[in-house]
Every structure is written in C-alpha cells, then in structure tokens.
Design a binder for these strands. Sequence first.
RNA 1: GGGAGCAUAGCUCAGCUGGUUCAGAGCAUCUGCCUUACAAGCAGAGGGUCACAGGUUCGAAUCCUGUUGCUCCCACCA
Length: 904
Amino acid sequence: MNIAPKYDPSIVEEKWYSYWLEKKLFHSEPDTRIPYTVVIPPPNVTGVLHMGHMLNNTIQDVLVRRARMMGKNACWVPGTDHASIATEAKVVNMLKERGIDKRSLTRDEFMKYAWEWKEEHGGIILKQLRKLGASCDWDRTAFTMDPIRYESVIKVFVDLYDKGLIYRGVRMVNWDPKALTAVSDEEVIYKESQSKLYYLRYYIDTPATTQFDLKDVTDSEGNAIPCGIKQNEKGYYVIVATTRPETILGDTAVCVHPQDPRYSQMKGMKVVVPGVGRSVAIIMDEYVDREFGTGALKITPAHDINDYNLGMKYNLETIDIFNDNGTLNEKGGKYKDMDRFACRKQIVKDLEELGLIEKIEDYTNKVGHSERTDAIIEPKLSAQWFMKMGDIAKKALEVVEDDTIQFHPAKFKNVYRHWLENIKDWCISRQLWWGQRIPAFYLEVEGRTETIVAETKEEAFQKAQQRFGNAISSIDQLRQDEDVLDTWFSSWLWPISLFDGIRNPDNPEIKYYYPTNDLITAPDIIFFWGARMIMAGEEYRDKVPFHHVYFTGIVRDKLGRKMSKSLGNSPDPIKLIEQYGADGVRMGMLLTAPAGNDLPFDESICEQGRNFSNKIWNALRLVKGWEVSEELKQPEECSQAVEWIEQRMACVLEEVERDFDQYRLSEALMATYKLMWDDFCSWYLEIIKPAYQAPIDRETYEATIRIFERLMCMLHPFMPFVTEEVWHTLRERPEEASIMVQHMPMSVFFDQRMLDGFAKAQETIAGVRNIRNSKGLSPKEALELYIRESEADTRFDNIIKKVANVSKVEYVSEKVEGAISFMVGTAECFVPMSQNIDKDAELKKLQDELAYTEGFLNSVMKKLGNEKFVNGAPEKVVNIERQKKADAESKIAAIKAQIAMLNA
RNA sequence: GGGAGCAUAGCUCAGCUGGUUCAGAGCAUCUGCCUUACAAGCAGAGGGUCACAGGUUCGAAUCCUGUUGCUCCCACCA
C-alpha cells in the first residue's frame, strides 16, 4: 500500500467532512435511544470565528462525538444570535458608508437593510465551524430572530406580562449614548480611569447679616477639625467635590451627613450652584460618606443613581441636562449642544475664571462603559420595560445549590450565588429596531394612555375592545411600542425554543431532547445567559435546561491579555487550521485547557497536535507496510505484547472514563495520547515489528489492526479527521461506514500484576539501553543479560531480548564478574562487558547509590524508631515502612558486595 | 469597599478523605543517535525548601493562622 510519508490534513479534512454531511451522520431524529443534547452558545450572526469559539466548540464536539459513540442519540443544535446592539451598529455603519442616515429611514426600510446585511454577512461563523470538524446537526440551524424563535419570544413576553412579572416604569437606567439605547446592568463594564476631582465653591445663599462660626469643630473622637464653612470677600461658602462638574447644571441640592459637625450650622440653609446661580437646599442624609472629599455632596437626581434615590426621598426637582446622544440640551443654557466631555472642560474653565474652583486633584475612579460600544455609560431616567427577578431567581439558585445542575469547575457556584442573591430587575427594552419588537400597544382612552400587551396587533385590538368597548373603533388607534427586547431575552429561551417548546410545549422533539445534557460556556456570560436559561427552564418547562455546565477558560495571548479584535492579538483560527490541521489545533488547545482555566494561547501548542497526527500517520504506514504471512506462527513476544497492550488499554480506558465523568477533558486526552504514543508506538509496535522486509504472522497482524482501530475510536472525539482517515485505511470498509458511529471501547477488568510485571521488564530494558548509551555501544551489538533475583519473572524475557537486543537472558544465583550492573527493584542485573570496565567510574556510581540508599534507610529507621509513629500510625503504613527497610537493607548488601567484587 | 479563588520544574497543569501514585505529567531544555514508520523522530538525562512565616500532628504540598504576590467577580463613595 502506498501511503504518503507525511500526513496532509487539508485534503483529508475536506474529504471526510463532506462525507459525514453527505451520509447525514450529524443529523438526529428522536428515536428509542437515550438522547444526548447540546445547544451551541449562539455566536453573533455577523461575527467571525475567534479562538474562544474554537475552544468552546471543540469541547462541545468532543462531548457530542463521544456520546454518539457511546450509543446515544447525539444532537448538537447550531445557530446564531441576532445580537441587537452589535448588529444594528454594523448596519448603521454600512448605511453611513453608503451615505444613508438611519434617521431618514422608516423602521421597515431599516429592517430590510438589516436583513439583507444578515443574509450577506451572517452565518460565516457557522461555515467556519465546519472547518473545525464540528458535528452539528446543520439541518436544525436556527437563528434567534427566525419565525419560531421570534414568536416564542413574543409569546413569553405576553405570558410574563400577564403573570405580572413584566412591567414598564421610569427608572434610572444605563444609557449608551453611542448606541442610543438603554442597556442592562450586566452590559456595563466598569473600567478604572484617571480622572480629576474638582472642588467647587457653593456660596451660602443668606442675607448679608448672617454670621457663621468658623472656628474648628470637634469630631466624634474629640479631635479638632476645620469647620466646613469657609469665608472670603464674597461671602460664606462650602466646598463640594465632584468628578463630573458639568452635571452642576442639573444640581438641585447639596447633601451633608446629619451628624457631621462641620456642617451642623447648615441645617435649613440654601447654597448657590456655582456658575449656574440656582439656589438649592442643603439636605442632610446618612448616605453621605463623611470621609470622602469635603463631606459635602452635590445632588443631581437626573444623572446619578444615588442622587436619584435621594431626590425621590427628599422630593427634589429633577433636571435632565443631556440629550440622548450625550450632548447638552436646552437646560444646559450656554452649553447647549456641546458634548458632555467638551462641556466639562469648558465649564471648568469658566468656573476657574469665576474663582469658583477651590482646587483640582488627580483621582482614579471606575467609569462604566458599554459592553458593546465601549461608550461611557450615562445614567439616565427613562421609561423602560423590566422583568421582576425575585422569585424566579430563588428557584434558579436552588437547583444549582442542590446540584441538580452541576458546575465544572464547582468554584463558579460562588459567583453564581452571589449574583442571584443580589439580583435586580432586568431591563429588557432596547431603543433599537433590530430585534423582537415589544408587543405592547398604547392607545388614548379619555385622555389617558392605556397599555395593551398582546402577541399581535389584531389580538391587542380585540383585547382593547373588550376592555374599553366602543371607545375603540379602529385598529389604527393602537400604537406599538417602538422598542425591541434585549437579545438575551431571546437567548434565554434557546434550549427550549430550538425545539419549539414554547409555542408547542407538548411536541415530541421538546419532550425527547429537553432537558439538554451539557452546557459549554465561557464564565463571562454566566449571568447574561446561563443563569437566565435556568430561569426560563424552570418557568416554562418546570425542568432545568441542562444538568452540567462546563466553563471554558478565557483564551489569552502570551502576555496574558484577553484575545480581542480591538487588540488584534488573536490569530486567525482558519489560518491555524490550514497550518496545523483541525485535529492539531483541537488537540493543542484541549491539552492545555482544563475546565475553568484560562488558556494562554501560543501557536506552538498546535505543533504538538500536528506532531501527534503525524505520529499516528506513521504508525499506520508501518503497519500497512507489512507483508502478512499465513504460515508463520506467532512468536511468544508477540502474544505477550498483544496481551499486555490490551491490559494496558483497559487500564487507560478506565482512567479516561473517570476523567470524562468529571469533565476533565485534557486529562482524558493526555492519557489517550500517552497510550497511543508511548505504549502503542514506542513499546508495542517495537516489540512486534518484524525484521526489515520480513513478514509478520497473521495472528499478530490482526490483533494489531484491531487494537489500532480501538485506539482510533478512543481518539476520534478529540481528533475526528485523522482517526477517520486511518480507520478507513486500516481495513476495507463497507460503503456507508464511519468511525463516527463505531462503539467506543469500554473498560474491562484488567490484570494489574501483569502490568506491573511488564513495567519491570521496561525498566530492565531501559537499564540495558543506558549501559549502551554510556558506553557508546551500537544498538546492533547484542549483549548478554544476567539477572539475580529470588523470585524471577520470566514472562517477558523474549520481549527484553528483542527490544534491548540481548542475545540471552539468564537467571543466576551468584554475582557476575566483569559486568556492569544495575538494579531493578530488588533484582540485580548484570551486563558482561567484553571491553575493560572503567573501574573507578563504576565504583563511583555504586558508592553514590550506596550513599543515597543508606540515607534513605536512615530516614526509614528514624520513623520506625519513633515509638509514637509505630503506635500512632495505622498498621498498614507501619508495614510499608518495614518493607522499605527490608528492601533498602538488601539493596545495600547487594551494592556492598558489588563494590567488594570490583575492589578484589 | 465586599466576596471568591489561586501560588507545585523554564511553561501549562495533576496531586481525592494528611501516610507507596508523594514530589508527578506533557511541553520546553540538555546529551547521544539520519537505527528502513516517523528528525513533526528515537534513546537517555538534568531540573522543584511544593510563595513566605508560624502552628496542629508520630507524620504536612495536603489541615489551621498570618504575611506577600497574582487573578476573577460584585458594589452607587460623589
């Protein structure tokens, strides 16, 4: 058989992926088998594959392929997410490039462009996943805005509204002035930034005759501290520290702590907002941190959540000074239309000129940025839709606490608990067009605005007629809410809506595939997505959506930075695949990424994968290059080797099964890797390998093929392509065959004593090789080996002979002269040398070993001499120490005898 | 500011209820080898006071306390 000397993944991968698709091997339909379901974390429809996706999807594919080979009906459902903000931003940009302003379009026109954009640029990422080998059921590809998913979302909204879990209200929300929409708390990223703390003078608004006592006051510990009230030629003033001087335009109070002696004279006073001239009240509230700044806080209820709360409490006026895009509105007076940051600069300049700034300090604080646009978030009062989280969160917490859903690694339970215990209502409306439009309809009835929530406008009209009778005559009186829903409000239904379980809760698919088995996700979306899916599952199926959550790590570059498009530090996964093969990249990533651990990515880890693919390939070349003889009898070393490798495989299988049970994928792969490379290639194949151009016996050959096939099955979930290729080359296969649907080998009982015996033989062989190495002897020169041991195990002598190139193995009761010796356990091995032995070198080696062993014995004796140890430690442990002592003593005796012999 | 986690070989990580899996693996490094499957390879070797300091114990990488250094999450100190 002619097999290429190097493995070329590109041809092979293309070939087999098409083959799998053509044979519909990824497709699943409900049947009598046990289902195994995974739903993909839907990537952004306009996104491209990055390393995070690679890792995440490789893990899913490993689990899915393994489940399939374990005889389960595996179904991995792919799809994409419409990603409102991100996609809408891209569409708006695209329009801008074409000279079209979004505001000049109607909603319908915009949506047409958006869908066009989606059709053109969407789904690239799913195509890329095929290159990775992902065994998704592509027939089931879904989109969070396709009809089934869209309708499901609408239905859920209406249902939750009817249950009283969804409400509309004017609240302080996180406003993204770039995307012009509200975002949820989870979408705000706080970043540390260097800013300034401005100390502003607020003059006290008081008749000129009023006198204040400016003497030092006494704090609670009895120390004298300066009074909070200052005086200059213009009058009395207090100093307020702020990081956002532009918001003074919206100031409606100044707040101090009621027990702050510095300000006790301020009760009931008013101060003048600097530069603005407005006179505002001094209020006193314990919210204020006396230690911060000057202990006096300006209150801007429209632009800060805390100020808003205080504003509510003290009935303060709310002055909103910003437009939606972050510029100043008419309340900003002369600063109208300036951007908020430009305004800040200008206002500081103006105040400085007016002598209203006491000082400016450098200050580091955390500023909220929009997760999607990176714009600085502006707290803003607006009417939004919210979902109540209280009760539903409790249930979602319970199922994780009681391990109905298990997290891998479990440490994420803490994070999850903390979030759910402090959860706030979820702002679900977004001021965008790309998304599910909120099915709320407004109409004017007798001067009031009434709200009707219904799945369609027609339904809303009917409901309106029922409620308001003849006051409603035309459907056109209804006006639908302009906003769409948060994208996560569709993704949270994903495991259910994929099987149409919202619209048709009793359909056979949802009943069969739900709940899914494993969720593979990055920890950074645990709140956005994971937690909310659990809530939706509880609410709509009364069952958790999955039983295990596998958290992948975050892929980082060599410098430890998160890989991101903006940093440009992410390699192109498709290029990597071209360079190392999909199998190589998969293997490289998996080996270095235990669950929950970040993956410091370096291209070199793919090399290991590529090298491994090639190693497998070369083993195939060796085996398929043999001529098989029907006459030859199986040599003893071959039957021993076959027996051993089967035992060994059983042992590793057990380990791998244990690893998978605990979701320790990298460990499972490492164990299989070693089985293939070390045990199979380096030991087994070397033992059975016939001499050059000599044939191999039929029995050994068949056994080898069989073992090779099973190894390929074990590796297939990790490296789907090379294993399929090799599996097909090993034997003639029927038309439809694929390794994908072979049975995964299962662990069976294995004989540990045999494995131990073989390990000893391996050590013996290594000993002989070492002698060869140190003496510079050719591997072709046969040596002799004498072993002195009380209980000889001769089973593997033929193997030793062959692999170590030893002409004879003989068991002796006396020491062998003129030989170099080494020990394997308690056995002494002698290799006679024809050439002169370097006496001094040998002596030194022996003496070193003697010193070490004596030291070892010493420490054992110390333990055994300790009465507390002998009495306190368990019998078993003491016995082990006694055995150590005996072994060490006999070893010392042997070494001493050898030294004596050398010196003789 | 609150909480959680981590620290073991140059790198990435195993190491379960303290004791033969106890100091390990892979990669990298070094030394020999172009030995007819494979130099993307083969055969060997070196390398760690288990972050630091105490404590508990007959016995600690493992349990406790403190220190230091990292990481993550949460939070409205302007």
